[in-house]
Design a protein around this nucleic acid. Structure first.
Lengths: 228, 228
DNA sequence: GCCTAATGCTGTACGGTGTGCAGAGACAAG
DNA sequence: CTTGTCTCTGCACACCGTACAGCATTAGGC
């Protein structure tokens, strides 16, 4: 037990780590990665820029804490809900994670900017192993499978976010898909016949349908008898 | 035909777009994303910072051109090599792409910072559709499958690069895995029993083995009879 | 109560970033 | 040669992360 009751000398802190992270996330949502500068965060919470360094050693620590915070918001309890099929649980978590991250598109590049080795990431991984063990996979296959799932999920979300160049909240899925469909109309059918023919499907790459389609295929592959 | 023989008035250009991109890539390799600044690139090729704006409208255009250039280096001819099984072709391309990108780890975040809709990206996608069509997938399934593959491949590469915090060339695979194994030793087995038990496998997440394992599982899922 | 030591925050400063603007020089077309 | 266009430079601006010194606040020991 750390004696949290016993305060150290010095003036009271005007802020909390959480206050700073909330301000950072808000700026991130509005203006994307580059809007979440230390100076802007400090201004948002009403302190001088360098006051932030009282709470975090440097900017990368702020980013890491923010990532951890976001991963902590994910409800991983679905992964161990024994009433549901293991693959359904994984699908539910994947959908939850996607919708959460897509409401903070500016934070997605930050997720992929560091190791994601915090406690929340660790528990999420552990729960994923639980679900895959329930699926009958041996420990090694469960581990490899869990990383394949994480890879797919984060890759899909990252690509989806990257498809929208300007910062700020993501447009509704249908609008984004419609925009892509319009862009695909410019693809020359002579040079790219298959692409031109599949343009409608490809416009939908950044949608929920494609997301779960690919995930289910991957899960089907994990279920397959060993091909190692 | 643009009359390239007929020069426009004004002094000869001291550089080429390619010269700039090469310098940018070299800086990226040494110092990561933040080392590839316009000012450093300009200094590397021996001009004033704003001379770069003669060749590219802004920094994002430099990045986009660099990404296109990297994608163009990938040898996509393997994807249409009729002597090989379609899934082997895809695996070969995936390995080629990974090894190329891992030699330029600093460029990987740039790949995921924009839409990847250039001509080289388009041809790569078209050739991927070719291979999947050879696998007997109907056009829609081939399209969805191709994006699932791209998602997995880029996700894996991005996570692999993100696992190494400091910039510069990537350490050999075994070294990185060994470092992760050492880090996993600190995971408390009481709180994370499955993680602790599978630590060795999880240390190998950032290796070729895991990469192809997951890819093969995904391909197996794509081969599976329709579960739509 | 005072004194001391520790702490939080501010002001200022430094070196870096992308990039806009004005001007100087080089070159082709007439 | 003149004219018009293009390339590159110098300078400037606003912004970035963050280091340093100093001031004000507070808890604990007396």
């Amino acid at each position: 037990m750390t004696d949290t009751g016993r305060r150290r000398p010095g003036p009271r802190r005007a802020l909390t780590e959480d206050t700073i992270l909330e301000a950072a996330l808000a700026l991130l949502d509005i203006g994307g990665t580059e809007a979440a500068s230390i100076r802007r965060i400090a201004a948002a919470v009403g302190v001088a820029p360098n006051a932030v360094y009282t709470y975090f050693p440097d900017k990368s620590a702020v980013v890491a804490a923010l990532v951890e915070r976001l991963l902590g918001e994910v409800d991983h309890s679905v992964l161990t809900d024994q009433r549901r099929l293991w693959s359904d649980r994984i699908e539910a978590l994947a959908l939850d994670l996607r919708s959460r991250l897509l409401t903070h598109p500016g934070a997605v590049p930050l997720l992929l900017s560091g190791p994601m080795d915090g406690p929340h990431a660790l528990t999420l991984g552990e729960r994923l192993l639980d679900a895959l063990a329930d699926g009958g996979l041996d420990p090694a296959a469960a581990a490899r499978g869990s990383y394949a799932i994480i890879t797919y999920v984060l890759g899909a979300i990252a690509l989806e976010v990257a498809d929208v160049p300007q910062p700020g909240p993501l447009a509704p899925e249908q609008d984004r898909i419609a925009g892509r469909r319009a862009a695909f109309a410019a693809v020359p059918a002579e040079a790219f016949p298959r692409t031109a023919a599949a343009a409608d499907v490809m416009a939908g790459y950044v949608g929920t349908g494609q997301y779960v389609w690919g995930l289910r295929r991957l899960l089907a592959g994990l279920r397959a008898p060993d091909l190692d």
